[in-house]
């Protein structure tokens, strides 16, 4: 059976949905950030799939994935540092404890 573009897009969609469900259901802040990173990974797989299958001569999708990777890393570092600053006051990992910045 031949693997088509839609197989890869389906995997990206499933990863994105797992990330969405996880970010809605979990209460731990760090697990919430991990779920967001899983969503971002699904989006990156979709970018690479379109770049590989749609006749991309300039590697546009590949370059965009590089930007998204850097942005995701910066976003995660900022979010974890904010969480650490707030954790020092409230001593809780539960996301419902953090109702104000």
């Amino acid at each position: 059976m031949e693997i088509t573009m839609y197989h890869y897009l389906f995997i990206g969609l499933i990863l994105f949905l797992i990330g969405v469900i996880g970010s809605v259901l979990v209460k731990n802040v760090i697990k919430l950030l991990i779920a967001i990173e899983i969503m971002l990974t699904g989006i990156n797989i979709n970018f690479i799939t379109f770049a590989a299958y749609c006749g991309n001569d300039k590697f546009d999708g590949f370059v965009l994935v590089l930007f998204y990777t850097a942005l995701g890393a910066a976003e995660l570092a900022v979010a974890l540092y904010l969480f650490y600053l707030m954790f020092r006051k409230k001593e809780s990992e539960n996301i419902e404890s953090y109702t104000e910045l």
Binding site: N44, I45, I48, T49, A52, T69, A73
Partner: peptide, 24 residues
């Protein structure tokens, strides 16, 4: 994240696979 780098590799983007494995 490592499995995603496998996907990047089999889709023909070795550079992104290395970046994904190194950063993520």
């Amino acid at each position: 994240f490592f499995s995603a780098s496998i996907f990047f590799y089999i889709l023909g983007s070795e550079y992104n696979a290395i970046i994904q494995a190194a950063i993520y």
